[in-house]
Design a protein around this nucleic acid. Structure first.
Length: 209
DNA sequence: ATTATGATGCTCT
DNA sequence: GAGCATCATAATC
């Protein structure tokens, strides 16, 4: 069964841990892939400087201001996509970044898209890897994840972990004033959770003086 | 094990 | 122009 609109129409820090263990279903042109979520991060557009929506609505983040339960997909670092689920009431732009998971079915399809993965655990171990494995790009931005069935992308109820298995800590790669929030959630000891990396400010090579 | 760096282009100021 | 919610690879301990 798909998760309901009401599931996502709650504070983002409540929805995020509740997404662990849920099933993400991606119907690709070549067939379905399912994934069990093991790692997520919450971004609160109202109060959180780490959120893409903190400075207001733009063309890129428009989906975050729409109804809950829809996808927000963005392009990053010139080559990757990341998948989020919009949470909270329409107009309050919060979202959960889906960071990692365990591929349950359609593993050959995922492996074809991730030729550099050295094990099944690496197929979706990180937000860009997850998006690559599941063939997710900006054409899915704004799509409804509560439809189920043959929809291109949906979130189903799945198999949540026992509450004592849920861990939380600071978010990966988030610096500045948003770094303090312990809004990364993962399943303890799960081999598909990505390694934590602290934010490192980096500047591209400048042109010669 | 950790730390560094190139790739690559869009978005916002 | 500066920075980016990353990945893969290489260098070094």
């Amino acid at each position: 069964m798909p998760l309901t609109r009401d599931f996502f129409d709650r504070p983002v820090v409540d929805v995020a841990p509740d997404l662990l263990g849920r099933t993400l279903l991606r119907n690709t042109p070549d067939g379905p892939i399912t994934l069990r979520l093991t790692e997520v991060e919450a971004y609160d557009g109202e109060t959180d400087p780490g959120s893409h929506a903190y400075r207001g609505r733009t063309a890129r983040n428009a989906a975050m201001f729409g109804p809950p339960g829809h996808a927000y997909v963005y392009f990053i670092y010139g080559m990757w996509f990341s998948l989020n689920v919009v949470c909270g009431p329409e107009g309050k732009a919060s979202a959960v970044l889906l960071r990692a998971g365990e591929i349950l079915t359609g593993t050959p399809l995922a492996a074809d898209r991730r030729p550099k993965a050295r094990s099944a655990n690496e197929l979706a171990k990180g937000p860009a890897r997850l998006a690559t494995a599941l063939d997710i790009d900006r054409t899915l931005d704004g799509t409804d994840l509560c439809t189920g069935g043959d929809a291109p992308l949906s979130l189903l109820d799945g198999d949540p972990p026992a509450p004592e298995r849920v861990r939380n800590g600071p978010r990966t790669g988030v610096g500045g004033d948003g770094a303090d929030h312990p809004w990364r959630y993962w399943i303890a000891d799960d081999p598909t959770v990505s390694p934590y990396r602290r934010h490192v400010p980096r500047r591209r090579a400048t042109t010669a003086p």
